[in-house]
Design a protein around this nucleic acid. Structure first.
Lengths: 139, 139
DNA sequence: CTAATTGCAAAAATTTTGCAGGACT
DNA sequence: AGTCCTGCAAAATTTTTGCAATTAG
């Protein structure tokens, strides 16, 4: 991670512990939208003493600071995304893969939300990726 | 529940136990997108012996048969919706309320999904409902 | 009558919490 | 040095499972 980024993180009041940096870096280099467990498993070899609590604590802080987004698509499992520009997602119902969709979508703000405060929206596409589509065969 | 509906449910090969009927009816008369626990709590007074397993089993069957949809918006909690026509949702980050959005949205199918099987999509709007908006005050 | 469904209790999966010791600034 | 962070273990939350007893068709 470069100097500028380090400074930026410090400016948010974050202590830059090795574990925290590793989690951030892992997320930034990884567009697979990993779960807390994925992150834990990936980093465990490098930080044998690291605990789940640290992963969860760190993710919570990163989400608070807006550096990471929480994705709730897969049932009962949070997944995390360090790509924070507005974008959409495709969820494969077979292998649970999530891919980023960067198309612009022309969303109409519903009149029902007139008196609401709207902070963001996203489109989620569901279906089967090419591999899973083939595995299930024709129907 | 009327005759025609009962016949329809039977035609799907579903045994119509009192618990199952109560769950279905509760969902059909309720657009709050309840969780399994909400359903359990609502029906407990009428079926003191009913267990969580029954609620979960029933919901699973109803989802399989396409009578109910599972909604994964709130982190780590499944919610259920008997309104199965395609529609969108608003999620209040304050009180966790989910409301239906029935606007048509002109979604562009992304070219990234060319070789994918697309089964459905939905737009999720996030923000604060009028009550929660006021509670948090201006910022 | 038979297979499907229920209820119970235990287990699984994921996330949260309290606290003591340790590390970052 | 002081505060924030880590690691551990226990708890909390939600969902799933195994199995014996019951019930709908």
């Amino acid at each position: 991670m470069n100097e500028a980024k380090l400074k930026f993180y410090k400016s948010l009041g974050l202590k830059l512990t090795p574990q925290r940096l590793a989690i951030l870096e892992y997320l930034e280099n990884n567009r697979s939208h990993p779960s807390a467990e994925d992150i834990y498993n990936a980093l465990k070899p490098h930080f044998p003493s690291m605990s789940f609590a640290t992963v969860y604590n760190t993710l919570e802080v990163l989400v608070e600071k807006g550096l990471v987004k929480e994705i709730n698509i897969e049932s009962n499992k949070k997944r995390f995304d360090a790509f924070t520009h507005p974008h959409h997602h495709f969820f494969c119902k077979g292998c649970k893969k999530i891919i980023d969709i960067e198309n612009n979508q022309n969303i109409t703000i519903p009149k029902e939300l007139k008196d609401y405060e709207l902070t963001e929206f996203q489109v989620i596409f569901y279906g089967f990726c090419p591999e899973c589509k083939n595995k299930r065969g024709k129907r």
